[in-house]
Write a protein that binds this DNA or RNA. Sequence first.
DNA 1: CTAAATATATGCTA
DNA 2: TAGCATATATTTAGAA
Length: 701
Amino acid sequence: MSTLLLADKEDLEVMGAVKRSNKHTIAKANGGSVKKQKVAEKLPSPESESEPESAPEESSGEELSDSSEDDLDDIPVDDKDEEDELDQLDDVKEDKDADEESDDMDEDASDEKVVDPNKKSSKEQHAEQRKLLSERKLQRKSGIEVQRIKSLWEKLRVNKPTPPKEVRDKLCNEIWELSKDVIYDLVLKHDASRVVQTLIKYSSKERRDLIVKSLKGNYYQLATSSYGKYLLVKLLHYGSKESRNLIINELHGKLRKLMRHREGAYVVEDLYVLYSTSEQRQQMIREFWGAEYAVFRDSGKDKTVLEIVHELSEKKQLIMTNLVGTITATVEKGSTGFQILHAAMREYTTILKDDIEKNDKQIREFIELLTEQFAELVHTPEGSEVACSLIAMANAKERKLIIRTLKNHANELIKNENGNIVLITLFMTVDDTVLLHKSFSTELLTDDLVPELIKDKFSRRPLLYLLKGLDGRYFSPLIKKELHKYEELAYKKTSKKPQEQRRAELSSKALPLMYQSILSTTKSENPDKSFDKLLSVNIAAQFITELILTSTDVAEVNDTLRPELINEIFEISVKGDVLEDFHLINKVPFISRSLKALIQGNEFKWDNDTKKLISTSNSKIPGVGVEFAVKVVDEVLSSNKLKDWTSGQGAFVIVACFEVLQLLNENDKTKELGKALKKIRKDLSDDADNKGAQLLLKLIK
DNA sequence: CTAAATATATGCTA
DNA sequence: TAGCATATATTTAGAA
């Protein structure tokens, strides 16, 4: 029943701290799956109604009979009675947790409702029962101590006002004196283990270490206990390196069993994700290789699975069987989201990839096992790696099924740091571009989503891939290498279509959708979703520039969509008074770069060797390049704003225009601009801090 | 492309 | 042991 009785603020603090300390990598990704689940379990939604708290007589024995700990038999009932009076808040939570946890409870609860009106009349019954139970309680192991400790604890844990430190320390010391010899009798009981948790929280390092030592030999039991597991997690959280090491080593060899255990699996997951060093993680994963590694925890140390597998061929079969056994059991248990499992899967996948011909049967089976759960994989780095590798090795039919699963999670997939890589892998490997487009592009490239997607570092990546391929500007060498590996793997068997053709097919379908969605913001009623808000975000503006500079043979884009978008940008960032603070040029420094990019278009680029602008052989894109430069110059000159433009960031825009015009021998315009610039030469030289202005001076010499 | 900035891991000191 | 400093990897910005 109530596994989560211990969920109080302390637990949440632990989780919070934990999340923060891991924000960059795994835990963050994990937050999406495992962690969140747990927190959700612990924090029932406030709106759900609170059940009648006092447990009715009937519900006592049965619900506990399924509990594996004999020690626990009748605790929850009497505890409940007590707790009701002592701490209503907590109990509301607890009862609800209990409901979620066990069906029996639900039934009991609904029974109660019927009885509820009679509650008052049963008061005496209650009193009687309470007496009975407290007698029984005293007979349990260390019963007397438990009673006294608990009453002390009640004083300690009141929250408002929090007891002053001296009082707290005094209470802690008293509790410690009472409990130090009977720790193990306490930790498996739900309320008593809470006492110990509080004790740990307020204790010194030495005392914590003592607690850890006194529980030596009992950690497996603790991990598998519904109540003890929280204590164990607290020990890990507050414990020293040595304590953690002691616990990890004691659990080593039992991890596989723990992973299959309802409670134990969570402890192992926490241990792996939050409380172990990378070396310890490797050690934990090795245990999944097989008995030899479970017994000798250093066996195979500093070696990769592949190295082991290559050493002895008979080991390969054994390790594979062991790995897939644990993985299958855990997946079937419904814990596909566990990160430690993802790590095990990665090991297995590494072996599979090693020889896709010989491992064909296992590959097919593994893919089948995971197809329906694919969305659970993609949020962790390891899981994402597994997902990408499997997609690469899957045949057309399997890919189709995987896509069907992922389609339902397209939004989370593209936004996630690790998930977006999976989407790109799909874009790079699946030949059926019609299916891809239907499953993802039409889902994602909507008026609502696109502005969001292009503002985000991760979610814009798949879109950028469609535009530019694996451009080094947006894809770090590491990621590129990874993606190329999947690509290579995919082309060994399933994928046939030339990469550029695939991307062209996808992007020609996606481009109009992107344009339309971005253009829709110019008509948005909501000021927060307006076009200029979008342009004010650096990476969004950058994306829009890339979009415009992507050449295509889609007529709709060339004839209407692109000109429209260019015009919107022109209206918003070139027209108007550049001296005003709210003008985009002043508000968003990046805009001048975007404009410069548009002025240079695909036709020109800066050559770092000759330190000059040169023409490129790229196909010209209508509306940008010199065409845009002329448009800007005309606007600036005709409205007499040249001086305004050259006095700030805008000067770089004018520089770009001048260079482009000069290079193309557009003599009339160049002369016109040059003349105008010479007129304000003095202003330029006065503006010594403005590097753009100084560049202009050099140009008109 | 390079330099600066930032994030991350690791070691060290009080 | 916590906080700080240092070394190192990765990301981001820069304006000849």
